[in-house]
Design a protein around this nucleic acid. Structure first.
Length: 852
RNA sequence: GGGCGGUUAGCUCAGUUGGCUAGAGCGCGUCUUUGACGUAGACGAGGUCAUAGGUUCGAAUCCUAUACCGCCCACCA
């Protein structure tokens, strides 16, 4: 292969990925002496396309993976594919609708098979996209969330919970979406503030007492009054003491309901009297439990009023029923007012339908013991969080967690392995023969529960399921995922893992924020601002996307996508490509690696020093998940140090041995971040062997720091000269003269080369004239004509003024006895040195001014 | 109501335990066809670090308060 003029990512990326995959580099090594490093990929939706958030996830996880592979760990990055129960079901149901069909046209088993085929037709697409992003994961270990090993574990966990009495079937209020016909966990409901109305309704007392003949309650949902089974006042409320235990006539019905005392009633709010509808409100349900109230379901799963709502209202939608109830109440003179208010209303996160709290028999997990254990482990610091603040947030959540409804009325998912006795609805048994609709046991006939598990019940067990074939990789090293999944996924993984394995699922958690659009808005299909990562890859290359995504991004913080960062990254890749191209040319010209012998090639010590620094710093940054800083560091190393100074200098020295070795180091260190371009270069260079992905992380160079300082000094001189050449009137180069100055003398060529000075003559001190550079320790003059010099005078005066101010600042600091006493000695010493340097400089500048 | 985060250059953002002249990318200005790269090179302009107090020898960094922006949780009869 040859180096073309510009790096064209699309020409090389697919082949490079295939090379890796074929080489077996993605498989974990089995070195007993090495550490184990394991990342489980949050499984992307099997039949979906990757979005930009996946781009970030893969970038972060793959950087860690490749880095740990390079440092020699037994590294295992486990890919996954999610059946995404509800998500996929929604897509499929939409498809059914478009065919003029509905879920009710098929049995559950038929539906399951249909979706299975639907998903498998599309599957593979997502996996190709992961490859395009460069994920160096072990494809042989790919786990689909419906694989037998998953369901097997899920069933055994369910059984264990069942046997431990932590699973129960209960009729409780669940969050029900009447469109999707399924219940949700509390966490899945999206609350929105909406404008609503608060209506006051009078409930007449059956027997007027103590001057009361009615009680007024307030409600935002008048239609639910048909299901009221009590009204409540606060036990402390003096106004209503005498009424407790009496009855009111429930308007629009023929029922009489009791007045009860319960703390739920807030004396301060409204009239202090609250209606109780246990079947349709979470708080009321709890009141109902405390007082053994009957529960009357007036809204059905179809979202329409039931028979129990009365003949007048049956089959009306809740909205129609609300209007009619209000109208009827008004006719009876029982409507006492209405008020505009704002209140939060729960919505289905997929279709936005208002969530109805409805009574339903479901499987629940008693989470208290699980949560307690998780809290304990978190408090003990067994899992490290990035950002650290998320730990406490999770603890707070776990402390108030209510029992977890794990039943979903969706055909697409893992069937719940429970069967019900057809003769005794309370008799449920556990059995794994879920492929059968009906089973016989002990002479009794049992029918399978139609429901499936909440996706999070299975994905909550992901870390120990996916690593079950290589147990030494559990607990995994780090769980990297979106900050929005803290509760529903991270929390559940911790609880279930402790329960099942007695161990934490991972040692660290890194949570990334959302990738927003360029304007900082959340991306959504409806807004049309979605950025497709694969399009970015084809436009700028996979490496550019990775580097662009991690730039300026810190843990847990939402951050806008920035095309300019992607472009800057693309340019970096091209820069590195051209660096390699130049070095290859030099190597071709001088294949034996002979170097021109010189003792003054300080740039070589200097670059080795900075490569060492970068090497150490990168390890630190990656250990603390500071990806953005690591990216910056590499950008600066490659561009500002390696190319602009080292390589420019090396055009003189041409030490191809060092050029090769330093380039290799650069390629290895950048490889985790930009795998494609670095590997492509590795494959293109004439002397490299094998594949880059499995190289060893570089050793440090031996460096003479005195020589490094020499080059820093030279850099200063060169930068100073360049700056003058640019800013002097006419912006042109002049000869650079010096006297007895060993550093400059030895580097005449370099200075000339890097400043474009026409010549760099050595002269006797008395012959030096022109503009003197304000560099302490050196007598260097730019030989410029007198006219130009005068114009320069003003600049100089300005600088002297500024320098004087800086000296004042330092003086003030040193004049402060407390500073000298209390600040660290090195720091004080440093200040003194600075002061001396600056004073020295000031004197020289003043002298220079006088010369002019 | 409870909690979390943010406010630093024109824009997007870094800035680890307080300590060099507060940084980067993009953008902007001037100059440059140099043994690779114009997706480039050189030089440069640009910041009262939201505000007000406090702690400290020293604060973008720690504390308190305020303002504005964003997010999460709970509640809203």
């Amino acid at each position: 292969m040859k180096f073309s003029k510009a790096y064209e990512p699309n020409e090389y990326e697919p082949d490079v990925y295939a090379l890796w995959e074929k080489s077996g580099a993605f498989k974990p090594t089995q070195n007993k002496k090495a550490d184990y490093y394991t990342i489980v990929m949050p499984p992307p939706n099997a039949n979906g396309n990757l979005h930009i958030g996946h781009g970030l996830t893969i970038a972060l996880e793959d950087i860690l993976t490749r880095y740990h592979r390079l440092i020699g760990d037994n590294t295992w990055y486990i890919p996954g594919a999610d059946h995404a129960g509800f998500e996929t079901w929604v897509v499929y149901e939409r498809f059914l609708e478009s065919q003029g069909k509905s879920r009710f046209d098929y049995t559950r088993d038929q539906l399951y098979t249909q979706v299975w085929n639907f998903v498998h037709e599309q599957r593979g697409n997502m996996e190709l996209q992961l490859r395009a992003l460069g994920a160096s994961c072990d494809w042989d270990s790919l786990t689909f969330t419906l694989d037998p090993k998953v369901t097997k574990t899920v069933y055994s966990t369910f059984k264990k919970l069942w046997d431990d009495g932590l699973i129960y079937r209960g009729e409780k209020l669940v969050n029900f979406c009447t469109k999707h016909q399924t219940a949700f966990a509390d966490i899945e409901v999206t609350y929105k503030d909406e404008a609503g109305k608060l209506w006051q309704i009078a409930y007449p007392l059956v027997e007027p007492t103590e001057g009361f003949d009615e009680l007024v309650v307030a409600t935002t949902r008048p239609e639910t009054m048909l299901g009221d089974t009590a009204i409540a006042v606060n036990p402390e409320d003096k106004r209503y003491q005498a009424l407790i235990g009496k009855k009111v006539q429930l308007p629009l019905t023929d029922r009489e309901i009791p007045i009860i005392a319960d703390e739920h009633a807030d004396m301060e709010y409204g009239t202090g009297v609250v209606k109780i509808t246990p079947a349709h409100d979470q708080n009321d349900y709890e009141v109902g439990q405390r007082h053994n109230l009957p529960m009357i379901t007036v809204i059905g799963f179809d979202g329409k009023m039931t028979e129990a709502a009365g003949a007048n209202y049956e089959n009306l939608t809740t909205e129609e029923a609300r209007k009619k109830v209000l109208k009827n109440l008004n006719e009876q003179g029982l409507l006492r007012g209405e008020e505009d208010i704002k209140h939060a209303v729960g919505h289905c996160y997929k279709c936005d339908t208002t969530i109805e709290p409805l009574l339903k028999e479901q499987w629940f997990v008693d989470v208290k013991p699980l949560a307690q254990r998780a809290i304990k482990v978190l408090k003990e610091g067994k899992i490290k969080f990035h950002p650290a603040s998320k730990k406490q947030v999770l603890i707070n959540y776990l402390e108030q967690l209510k029992d977890w409804n794990i039943s979903r009325q969706i055909p697409w998912g893992i069937p719940i392995p429970a069967f019900q006795n057809i003769d005794d609805p309370t008799d449920w048994i556990f059995d794994e023969r879920v492929e059968q609709f009906e089973i016989k046991k002990n002479g009794k006939t049992y029918v399978r529960d139609e429901d499936t598990f909440d996706t999070w019940f299975s994905s909550g067990q992901w870390p120990y399921i996916t690593t079950s074939d290589r147990k030494e990789h559990f607990p995994t090293s780090v769980m990297e995922t979106g900050a929005d999944l803290l509760f529903q996924w991270v929390g559940r993984m911790i609880m279930l893992s402790l329960y099942v394995t007695n161990d934490v699922p991972f040692k660290e958690v890194y949570m990334h924020g959302m990738v927003l659009d360029e304007k900082g808005q959340k991306m959504s299909k409806s807004k049309g601002n979605v950025i497709n990562p694969i399009e970015i890859v084809s436009q700028y290359g996979s490496d550019a996307l990775r580097l662009g995504l991690i730039a300026s991004r810190s843990a847990g913080v939402n951050q806008a996508f920035s095309t300019s960062k992607v472009i800057a990254s693309r340019n970096l890749c091209n820069k590195l490509w051209n660096i390699s191209r130049l070095i290859q040319q030099m190597v071709d010209e001088n294949p034996k690696g002979n170097k021109q012998l010189t003792i003054d090639n300080y740039s070589e010590d200097w670059i080795c020093f900075h490569l060492n620094q970068a090497n150490k710093e990168l390890q630190k940054l990656l250990a603390s998940y500071r990806f953005a800083e690591a990216g910056d560091l590499l950008y600066d190393l490659i561009w500002n140090k390696y190319a602009d100074w080292f390589l420019e200098s090396e055009k003189l020295w041409k030490d191809t041995t060092l050029l090769k070795s330093t380039l290799e180091q650069v390629l290895i260190m950048l490889h985790p971040f930009a795998p494609f371009v670095t590997e492509t270069i590795w494959q293109t260079l004439s002397w490299t062997e094998g594949i880059l992905i499995t190289q060893k992380w570089p050793e440090l160079y031996k460096v003479d720091t005195k020589r490094v300082k020499k080059f820093d000094e030279l850099k200063d001189i060169i930068a100073n000269i360049r700056s003058h050449f640019q800013s002097l009137p006419g912006a042109q180069a002049y000869p650079v003269a010096f006297d007895d100055d060993p550093l400059v003398y030895a580097n005449q060529l370099l200075i000339q080369h890097l400043t474009k000075a026409p010549s760099v003559p050595k002269l006797p001190t008395e012959e030096l004239s022109g503009l003197r550079l304000a560099i302490p320790g050196h007598n260097i003059y730019l030989q410029i004509p007198e006219k130009v010099l005068n114009q320069h005078k003003e600049n100089l005066e300005e600088r002297i003024l500024k320098l004087g101010q800086e000296i004042n600042t330092l003086n003030a600091r040193l004049d402060n006895p407390r500073y000298v006493e209390k600040a660290p000695k090195e720091l004080v010493e440093e200040t003194r040195e600075q002061l001396a340097t600056k004073q020295n400089l000031l004197e020289k500048m003043k002298a220079e001014l006088q010369l002019i």
